[in-house]
Design a protein around this nucleic acid. Structure first.
Ligand SMILES: [Mn+2]
Ligand SMILES: [Mn+2]
Ligand SMILES: [Zn+2]
Ligand SMILES: [Zn+2]
Lengths: 139, 139
DNA sequence: TCTTTCCTTAGACAGAGTCTAAGCTAGGAT
DNA sequence: ATCCTAGCTTAGACTCTGTCTAAGGAAAGA
């Protein structure tokens, strides 16, 4: 079944029908959905599911560390169930399509000690931008 | 005077009193303000300035390429007049303080060709996260 | 079964940002 | 100097995204 559902069951967390539908919707398509997109798709399987439950559930999954919240554009947040393989994102400035990408090394290594301002630095995420093949200007 | 104002004058762009106050407010403190923070500070010098003008002006500066819009938290956007020196950001997960940082090399070099999905990749921005000295757990 | 806790729901609410319609200003033309 | 016009500013309505509240509903232990 859903690997996300499996991971969620390991926490002391009641797996209700609503939460299962949300988890399966989130993981099913390998894209980065907004909360409203998840609500629309979850409604196809469970028409009475509420907006509040979708938002609550996504926030809980994030708090449990099983989903990552992404903020690309300052509009809607997007939710990424793919937390096991750490990765970064490549976004098309034309159409907005977003791909998972992997760098040759851990970006934390690229921040020298004298640029750390005394911080304990634990995470680095990269947003690459450009134009996808469809949006690139015709040659 | 303000280097941002100088850069803006090079575009065919009417430099009104409102726009000058906004530009000087934005560049004056070397922090990353939200639109509302800029409005508050601009009001100290020009009490009748409107919210709409602040938002319009910031969006125009971004369109002119003289200011960069940042989206760290999915709440308010922040505006960065420091576009000349390209740099990245280090954020404290505790208190939210944000520092400009510089990496040892251009992050674009770390995305291999077979991870580019046919895109023309033009930009990479890194968000580093951690805890600042004040927020770090006591030793 | 009873009880307690947690979950779901509709709808009100809030924050951030955009849009509209009206009046105003800057700066070129005369 | 004055006129004209395009572009700028304004208040406030509106939209979008997300949170909160209060009430009822399901689950699991006693
Ligand atoms: Mn991803
Ligand atoms: Mn900066
Ligand atoms: Zn595209
Ligand atoms: Zn801190």
């Amino acid at each position: 079944m859903s690997d996300l559902v499996t991971r969620l069951r390991r926490h002391q967390w009641r797996m209700t029908p609503q939460r299962r539908v949300i988890a399966e919707t989130l993981e099913g398509a390998h894209v980065h959905y907004t909360a409203e997109e998840i609500l629309d798709r979850a409604c196809e399987r469970m028409p009475e599911i509420s907006r509040a439950t979708v938002y609550n559930t996504l926030n809980e999954m994030v708090a449990l560390g099983e989903v990552v919240e992404l903020n690309f554009d300052g509009r809607s947040k997007r939710y990424d169930p793919n937390v096991d393989h750490d990765h970064h994102h490549l976004i098309c400035d034309g159409c907005g399509v977003t791909k998972d990408v992997h760098t040759v090394a851990d970006p934390l290594e690229w921040l020298p000690g004298d640029e750390r301002h005394g911080f304990t630095v634990t995470e680095a995420s990269i947003t690459f931008r450009g134009l996808c093949p469809e949006c690139a200007p015709a040659r």
